[in-house]
Amino acid sequence: MEEPALSKAVDVLSIVTLFAAAGAFTLGVRAIGETHDLQALYWLAVGGLLLRAAVDMLRPRSGVR
């Protein structure tokens, strides 16, 4: 795959990951409502990590080449 096309695919993947993070956060909020605190922590942690992955895909840290 050529670099511009691959770059565009990574952009789309980043946006999809952002949506997945929103889904995980929603599951976390639902678990809070159902008094499943461990599940809530689990989904909020998954959401946070997905969000970090989405942002890192757009802006790589300086050490990564």
Binding site: S7, V10, I15, A53, L58, R59, P60, R61
Partner: peptide
């Protein structure tokens, strides 16, 4: 906040790096 960052950074070619580097950068959280 993350959506705003992603929306704005999509246009910054200088700071984005190559696609493979971008995927590798997200490897740890993924």
């Amino acid at each position: 906040t993350a959506a705003a960052q992603i929306a704005l950074d999509r246009g910054k070619k200088a700071t984005r790096g190559r696609p493979r580097a971008r995927i590798r950068s997200a490897a740890a959280p993924a």
